[in-house]
Simulated assay, not measured.
Amino acid sequence: MPSYVLKLGGSLIDTAREFMRALIILAEEEEAGFLVLPGGGPFADLIREVVAQEGLSEEAAHWMAVLAMEQYAYFLADGTGARLTSRLRLPEKGEVTLLLPYRALTEEDLCPEHSWDYTSDSIALLVAARLGIPLIKVTDVDGVLIGGEVAEELAACQLLEKESCIDQGTIRLLSGELSGMRVWVLNGSDPAAFAQAFRSGKGGTFINGQKLSPSDQPMGRFIQ
């Protein structure tokens, strides 16, 4: 099986290390490689509180939030057997590695913009694009809700300027320069159910990239 970038959300922190152990077993059984991008979780929430209280610049907040992702990486690695890396490289067959994003991004900053629109979701997509492999976003919901129901598949443009479980930076990238990619959103609360969905290729939501024409682009910031 191919390699994947897997973004592991901070919303799963209570069960995240159990998920990591299960992911290592899954990687070995399926001969798949996973490069895990940590979310920010409560570490990033603290940054948001500081920003709200102290009025920090978006530039400072961005790098503090990336450091928060790195803290979560150490949490996820502790006692799980996952290895830490600061290199943007393809994971080997049966390997699970955790990216230390601050170290990687200070060597090569992939983010087109430093703002709260471009969070760990966007960073994971940009890393997946750089490595040329698919992205799986693992979170605590079953997928993207449209009209109260989980959508099996949708175009990224359907989520422009709308609140969902994925950040707006990712949606803009999928509607622009990374329109050839897609993101698979899966629930990781139950590692066994996640493994079953991964093996079958079914479940969650597939968000497909679709490049918009200039006239279709929303007002405000948009990645060309």
Rank of each mutant, 00 (worst) to 15 (best):
1 M>S: 15
2 P>G: 10
3 S>K: 10
7 K>V: 11
10 G>I: 13
10 G>F: 09
11 S>C: 11
13 I>W: 14
15 T>E: 09
16 A>Y: 03
18 E>D: 13
26 L>R: 04
27 A>F: 13
28 E>N: 09
28 E>P: 01
33 G>A: 10
35 L>R: 05
36 V>N: 01
36 V>P: 04
37 L>F: 15
38 P>I: 00
41 G>I: 06
42 P>E: 12
43 F>T: 05
43 F>A: 11
44 A>M: 05
46 L>E: 10
47 I>H: 00
48 R>C: 05
52 A>N: 08
53 Q>K: 14
55 G>L: 05
57 S>M: 05
58 E>T: 06
58 E>Q: 11
58 E>Y: 03
60 A>D: 08
62 H>W: 02
63 W>C: 04
66 V>D: 08
67 L>V: 06
68 A>N: 12
71 Q>V: 14
72 Y>Q: 11
75 F>T: 04
76 L>D: 12
77 A>Q: 13
80 T>G: 08
82 A>N: 09
85 T>Y: 00
87 R>W: 03
89 R>W: 00
91 P>N: 03
91 P>G: 01
91 P>F: 00
94 G>F: 05
96 V>S: 03
101 P>C: 09
101 P>F: 07
103 R>N: 10
104 A>L: 02
105 L>E: 09
105 L>C: 07
106 T>S: 02
109 D>E: 15
110 L>V: 06
110 L>W: 12
113 E>N: 09
116 W>A: 12
118 Y>H: 10
120 S>Q: 06
123 I>S: 01
125 L>T: 06
127 V>L: 09
128 A>V: 13
132 G>V: 05
132 G>T: 01
134 P>I: 02
134 P>S: 07
136 I>M: 07
144 V>K: 01
145 L>I: 01
145 L>R: 06
146 I>P: 01
147 G>D: 11
148 G>T: 07
149 E>C: 02
149 E>A: 14
150 V>M: 02
150 V>D: 03
150 V>R: 13
151 A>Q: 05
151 A>S: 12
152 E>G: 13
154 L>K: 08
154 L>Q: 06
156 A>G: 15
160 L>W: 06
161 E>T: 14
162 K>G: 08
162 K>A: 09
162 K>H: 14
163 E>G: 10
164 S>P: 12
164 S>L: 04
168 Q>R: 14
168 Q>T: 15
169 G>R: 13
174 L>Y: 08
177 E>Y: 01
178 L>A: 07
178 L>F: 06
180 G>W: 06
181 M>C: 13
181 M>W: 14
182 R>T: 03
183 V>N: 11
183 V>T: 10
188 G>V: 08
189 S>A: 10
190 D>G: 03
190 D>Y: 10
192 A>T: 07
192 A>V: 13
193 A>P: 01
193 A>V: 03
193 A>W: 00
195 A>M: 02
195 A>G: 13
196 Q>M: 02
196 Q>T: 07
199 R>H: 03
200 S>K: 08
203 G>Q: 00
203 G>Y: 00
204 G>T: 05
205 T>D: 05
207 I>Y: 05
209 G>R: 10
211 K>I: 07
213 S>K: 14
214 P>D: 13
214 P>E: 14
215 S>T: 10
216 D>A: 14
219 M>S: 12
220 G>F: 07
222 F>A: 01
